[in-house]
Design a protein around this nucleic acid. Sequence first.
DNA 1: GCCCGACTTGGTAGCGCTACCATACCTGCG
DNA 2: CGCAGGTATGGTAGCGCTACCAAGTCGGGC
Lengths: 342, 342
Amino acid sequence: MRPRTRRGGGRPTISDVARLAGVGAITVSRALREPERVSESLRGQIERAVTELGYVPDPNARALASARAEVFGVLVPSLTNSVFAEVVRGIYDSLSDGPFRVQLGNTHYSGLEEERLLQVFLSQRPAALIVSGIDQTKTARSLLEKADCPVVQIMETGPDPIDMMVGFSHFDGGREATANMITAGYRRIGFLGARMDPRSQRRLAGYRAAMEAAGLYDPRLVNTTPVPSSVSLGRDLFRDALAKVPTLDAVFCNNDDLALGVLFECHRASIEVPQQIGITGFNDLDMMQVAFPSVTSVTTHRYEIGCQAVAMACAAIAGERPEQRVVDLGFDLKLRESTARR
Amino acid sequence: MRPRTRRGGGRPTISDVARLAGVGAITVSRALREPERVSESLRGQIERAVTELGYVPDPNARALASARAEVFGVLVPSLTNSVFAEVVRGIYDSLSDGPFRVQLGNTHYSGLEEERLLQVFLSQRPAALIVSGIDQTKTARSLLEKADCPVVQIMETGPDPIDMMVGFSHFDGGREATANMITAGYRRIGFLGARMDPRSQRRLAGYRAAMEAAGLYDPRLVNTTPVPSSVSLGRDLFRDALAKVPTLDAVFCNNDDLALGVLFECHRASIEVPQQIGITGFNDLDMMQVAFPSVTSVTTHRYEIGCQAVAMACAAIAGERPEQRVVDLGFDLKLRESTARR
DNA sequence: GCCCGACTTGGTAGCGCTACCATACCTGCG
DNA sequence: CGCAGGTATGGTAGCGCTACCAAGTCGGGC
């Protein structure tokens, strides 16, 4: 109950450190933020005082005084989708060394929720913003354009970035995955898609482009649903597709969960993979190469996207805006047993 | 470039609102935080002024002045492990309505990292802290005990909570899962464990208790590794286990990823499940009931743990400390084809 | 010897908000 | 009618830090 200060829990403040080190408060502040601007001797004294008192700067006071919080705002559409979980992990890992904290928001694939969260995040004056996708609402886009901090759009590349971009082309991924199955000899290739967010739509467009180029496109081959993706949904979509088009000889799945559902259903119904049905997934989760038969999938560099986004934002904060504002990290089509028809 | 204020980007402040509404700044502050303490007429005027100016309170100034940030600090050992991803989702969903933000930290299963993050989080004076597990280091535990905010330990229950707890007994889960396989007629039941964090250790202890009770325990049946879990690791551990103990007739896997790896390896090696090998997993991911054969697993109420942790913390913040400080949400053993030997 | 610029250090004045206390007004009681 | 006790509102003084500016020190060029 020592009445050292009126409020605050009696934690040491910057002036406690300054007093102990025998310097001005502002010099302590500088020593912590720009050590090279303080002479070596003072720096030593200050460091000693900081250690002795166990001083930890108050980020709230810092943010208020400098009108800038050391926070990266990150908006993703889902926390449990392992694709975004890995992006987020890349962001956290890249940021764990520096002074920046992460403020994560879950938009639930909703543009309105994204706008709301953006408002909340912006009220903190973040150091940078990382948002998923390139299909922001008009309002969200305008908020981001007015934000006086670097903005990185991730997961996709496209024309007209708000500020910076890191991702890859979902269209190309869908097209290559489909083209590979056509080359492998499949003809009645179905598309299975869940959620159908903008990225899924572009994979579908890539699928369609490849099918049309080969003269194989048939709208009855396309099976989509707005329902969130899951393994069980993959099974269900596959059953529906097969009922609708019994001559189906392959499926390109929107993502690996669906592909896994298809694989299990094939086992259950004694459908031979890849002889009777070819399967291609998207994202290349660890399990796809372990599955039996192993499943062809499109590897996406999710962790790296997170890292690269942070790197670009940090460069921009440091005043070195990278000349390349749009970075395409590409993808790798991994050919495996599930499309190796002989 | 209007020099309205020296710093801040010209956003409206609480005194702008107060001036427009013709009241004192403190009344605006009250109207926003404790509306019932302000007369209805003033409240209306203030609300109108807030809307007109598009006023959004500055959380940093608020935190500084009240020595309390509207932030829940959440520490989990992994962001990509789908178990924790779901807990985190529960936390976010429960918190999205209220004024609280979430500050998420990834400890990478390291006690030291947990201590470091705790320091960082504590420097913000969070409204509550949610930490994973019950095996905090001495230092971390002491930090948490001194923290002047509610603390919830999640994922496990145990004696001697720091403050509050929500979880279930991993020991019981491991024991029941194992006992079920014994009942089903399996005798040489192996244990496959990755990572072997404290929760895995307790599942192993449960396995051992069940095996010993049946006079079946043999240390050669236990296969563990500190390596993080993955589907491919499940395959590898299973191969090792089978090489070491060719009479193996079942495996209890630490988690579903490993179980899936075992299942795939059985397919590949033409080992019949459940006749030749029984398989039980842990956590009951969606895919386990879709797999062929479907895989017996222990359902854990991960999303609910997140929700319950938030509910308890909020109650404590509101001054209504729940009389029940330790909540056991239990688990459900789901019996499926993979252990249905006939 | 003097002035100029570079470098180091410090003082002052807030950042936008709320805790604390004071004040004004009202109600009901003796 | 006066006064305790409650309710609604406001003023003052910070919370802990940093932007801004001022001042002091030093070396080098003329």
